[in-house]
Each structure stands twice: as structure tokens, then as C-alpha cells.
Amino acid sequence: MKWAATAASALLVPANALLRFPCAQLVIDRVDPLVNPGLSPSPHIHQILGGNSFNITMDPAKDMPNESTCTSCQFSEDFSNYWTAILYFKARNGTYKRVPQFPNAGFDGVNGGMTVYYMQDGLYNFAQTSKVQAFKPGFRMYIGDVNAKTREQAERFRQLTFTCLDTIGTRDPQTLDFPEAPCKTGIMTAVRFPTCWDGQNLDSPDHMAHMSYPESGTFESGGPCPASHPVRMPQLFYEVMWDTSKFNDKADWPEDGSQPFVWSFGDGTGYANHGDYLFGWKDDALQRAMDSPCYVNCPTPKTQNTQAMNACTIKPRVNEDIDGWVKELPGGHQAQYVKRR
């Protein structure tokens, strides 16, 4: 898939926008139309948010916004789909239980899900003065490596991190692997996508090659895009709040005291953290938002209340236990751990 980009299309009017908003849980299901299109069930279970036209194929030729009748996100013109793997706790007796999620600061009452950001500059840059081009219809991307088992492999994606939460507002320090001690309030995972587009392809075989991190520095430091990927896009950023506090009794942890959390595909290191995205904003709603001066509380996109967000759900395709204690992870996975350093 390609998009004919011109130099003029990348020259946007000055703007200063940062969107921060919650999306409630659309469904928890073993479906992944980006990495495993058409396959049901997919190899591991995900939490999925956004427009209710989500399905096992997500044909890029179709108009997602017009096919959806609701969205689980606060901005009612955002029918995109966002998803990540699910976090599990492995008890000393070898059984697993899904770790519940809780809403981020300021979003009380939202059912699970996560917080989504679209930024023109770093999160703490209140000016937000850089120019960005919004994603185009049919655009999709993935970040991370489901097979990563070492720090070196994880460092390829330097902005996928974990934070051990002392309070809901804790943001540092950030690590590339799971915290090794109980966290008072929970664990936050952060997924920051690349911000430089090649200007042509809406997707690529690995769902990553059409995007790039800055040539030097980082998005937050204003690093320039490489010549191969010259178009600066918004930073898409997920924050997921996992209520691991329910599992802080060390008597339930492995006898050797090692951390007990594992991704739904079996990774017990945390290095394989990853995220998926399918663009689905209606018409030019995202570009208008990016071109409008605002910081977090942005009035340009239409909004809906928490009740409407929570009400937008779909039924899972795969009938399996997602809340009880299970002997193996959905899909037959078992926790895999390696020595970390």
C-alpha cells in the first residue's frame, strides 16, 4: 500500500497540540488482524480498544470509520484500533491469572483499556510547536519484538518501558524489563511508536519498515528524521496501568523470589513488550486536532462521556476463560524466563 506524498503535503501550518485521552476495553480476545490476519484464534490473547468494526482481517481497502458504529475511546471521531498483549501473574503453584487494569490519573470510571497520546513534541514540552502530518487512511504499524529475550534485543526499541508505580503519578525510573520487586500501586507499561514515515507506504511486511525513529537523538529531543523516512508524524504513545498490587504477597511468588509476571505469549522477561495500531480517525479529525493549539484538554475533536466509552464493546470470537485461574496461558503458552542483566 502506498500514499502519494508531496513536499507540500508535509508543510503544515504551525500548531501546538498534544492529545491525551482514555480508551475503554473493546474486547479481550485471541485475535490479531495485523500480525495474523484471518487467523482465529491467533497465537496469543490481546486487549483491544477503539472502533467496533474490529475483526480478524481488517481489510485496509475498507473504510473503518464508516463501518464502526461506536468507539471505546473518548474522542468519538476516533475509530482507530489499539491493542497490546495481556499481562498475567504466575503463582508459585504454576497457575496463571490475568492481571486487571485500572484507569490512569484523571480518567476514573473508564473500564480497563489504556491512555493514548498523540504528540507533536515530547510529553513535557508544553509548547508543542513542531509540525506533524497525521496518519492516512489505511495506515497501520507495529512496534516491538515478540521474540525478544535479551536487553540487547529490547534496546532496538528503546522506548518500550516499564515503571514500578509507587503512586498513580509515578513515571520514573523506567526499565526495559519487568520490575523485580512488588510495586505498591501497580506496573505501567509504556509503548512509544516511531515518528518518521517514508512518505509512501501505509504498511510494510513487518509492519515497521515504513516507519523509523529519528536519525539522531529522540523524538523528545527533537531529533531529525532520516532521509529515508522524511515525514514527521505524531508520536503515538500508550500507557497501560496493570493492577499488580493484587499479587504483592511474596508468599505467592516463585520460591527463589524472582518476579512472577509474564506476557500472554509466555515472555517472563518483559523484553518482548509490543503494541499494534490501525488508524481509523474519521475524515480529517486527527489533522484538525494536530493543527489546533491545545494541551491535553483539546476541544477540537468531538468527545463522548465515560458511559458511552464503556458501552462500546464487541463479543470475543474465542470462548476461553479470561478471568479465572488457569493451568496454561490462552493458546497453550507457558512462562519462559531467561537470566536477566
Rank of each mutant, 00 (worst) to 15 (best):
R158I: 02
M290R: 08
F279N: 07
R98C: 10
D276V: 00
P14D: 09
C294P: 05
T6H: 11
T313D: 06
S53P: 01
G106T: 09
I28Y: 01
R192C: 01
C312M: 13
T175Q: 05
W263S: 03
L26W: 02
Y142E: 07
G222Y: 08
A10K: 12
Q25K: 03
R341G: 10
R340F: 04
P100C: 10
T303S: 13
P214F: 03
C23H: 02
L19H: 09
G332I: 02
P41A: 11
G217Y: 08
V110K: 15
M233C: 09
I322W: 09
V146F: 00
Q120L: 15
W3T: 05
T185S: 15
D267F: 00
L19Y: 08
H207P: 01
K2Q: 13
G138Y: 05
N273W: 00
W263Y: 08
D32M: 01
T163H: 06
F139M: 10
S245P: 09
L34R: 10
A181V: 10
P137L: 11
T175F: 03
A91M: 06
P293Q: 13
Q120R: 15
C196S: 05
K246I: 03
P301L: 07
D283Q: 14
L160Q: 03
D59G: 12
G199Q: 07
M290E: 08
N36H: 14
A154K: 13
D78Y: 12
V296D: 11
V31A: 04
Q153W: 00
L18E: 07
C70Q: 13
G106F: 14
Q259R: 14
T303C: 08
E152K: 13
V240I: 10
S76N: 12
D283P: 04
L39E: 08
V231S: 09
Q304Y: 11
T161Q: 11
C70R: 12
R30Y: 01
V31H: 01
Y118P: 03
W197E: 03
F178W: 09
C225E: 05
A335W: 00
S9W: 04
D59I: 12
D206N: 15
D121C: 12
K302R: 11
R340M: 13
L176E: 03
W197H: 04
V318P: 01
K315H: 06
V326I: 13
R171Q: 12
D284K: 15
L12K: 15
A85W: 00
Q47V: 04
L39G: 03
A91Y: 10
T71A: 06
P234E: 10
V35E: 12
H207T: 01
Q25I: 00
D206V: 06
R317V: 00
K302D: 06
T175C: 01
N111T: 09
T300L: 13
D321P: 06
T115F: 10
A227S: 13
Y124I: 07
S204M: 09
K90L: 09
T69Y: 05
N52R: 08
F75M: 14
Q47Y: 06
T300E: 14
I143M: 04
A134R: 10
A5R: 14
G222A: 10
K184S: 14
P41I: 01
S40D: 12
P194C: 03
N36F: 13
G113S: 11
Y238S: 02
Y271E: 05
Y96P: 02
A272P: 01
G109W: 15
E215A: 15
C312S: 11
F193Y: 03
G50L: 12
D243F: 01
N93L: 05
H333G: 00
Y117L: 15
K2I: 04
D252L: 14
